[in-house]
């Protein structure tokens, strides 16, 4: 059987290698500013992985809030406190060894779990036409266009309805009993908005107290 390269898998490999490599780089490097930069690349690649998983809204949110907002804030903090002794702080090697042992065993457990469910180890197969040699030449693009991997995903509207308390993706569930658990997210949404407001006021208050203390 002819098996073509799946570009979805190719980009998954690319982004996952970027994300993992730069996450490891964040751990290994001692310079705090470089750490921040590696973190940016790692989280940006994670956004790419979100896009590949069909979550385009979440991917864009990740780029906007995480990479564009949170990390700029973080780098701001780094630059405000970046005096020579704090730019690169070394960790005693005993702590490194301990952390490596704990992290390694945690990773082993997580990898074991990740591959223990058979239904998860392989994604949905490509449409039949993609596997024939003629398919790659002619009508494969037709068949692939309807594959969820390559069709543009459209989740923004559903997410918006979900945040307003309507689950337009769960309409097929007729049983009110099982529908009760999948109501919308209006209350959490409101709580989060008030929470953000409180955080904003709190952060502003802390920043004000800072000036008073220094006078």
């Amino acid at each position: 059987m002819h098996s073509p390269i799946i570009w979805h898998s190719f980009f998954f490999l690319l982004f996952s290698i970027l994300a993992c490599a730069f996450a490891v780089a964040v751990v290994v490097t001692t310079n705090i500013v470089r750490m921040a930069f590696f973190l940016v690349v790692s989280l940006g690649s994670t956004a790419g992985l979100f896009f590949l998983a069909g979550a385009d809204m979440v991917g864009a949110m990740q780029l906007m809030i995480y990479v564009g907002g949170t990390l700029v804030l973080l780098i701001f903090g780094v630059m405000l406190t970046a005096q020579q002794p704090f730019v690169s702080m070394h960790t005693p090697s005993g702590e490194w060894i301990l952390a490596a042992i704990v992290g390694g065993s945690l990773l082993a457990v997580l990898l074991q779990v990740a591959w223990s469910v058979d239904a998860w180890t392989q994604g949905p197969p490509l449409p039949e036409a993609a596997y024939t040699r003629e398919g790659t030449q002619g009508n494969a693009s037709e068949a692939l266009a309807h594959d969820p991997r390559f069709a543009p995903s459209q989740t923004a509207t559903q997410l918006g309805f979900g945040l307003l308390g309507e689950r337009v993706d769960q309409l097929s569930v007729k049983d009110p009993e099982s529908r009760a658990g999948m109501s919308g997210y209006l209350l959490p949404f409101e709580i989060v908005s008030v929470h953000l407001l409180v955080v904003l006021v709190g952060a502003a208050y802390l920043a004000r107290a800072r000036y008073r203390a220094s006078e």
Partner: peptide, 25 residues
């Protein structure tokens, strides 16, 4: 890996690596 459709497990592996890196960090 290039000719195989990506499943949930692949994502879990990446998530595990990020998580462990964060914990060690």
């Amino acid at each position: 890996l290039l000719t195989q459709p990506v499943g949930v497990s692949h994502y879990l592996v990446v998530g595990a690596v990020l998580f462990v890196c964060g914990v060690v960090c």
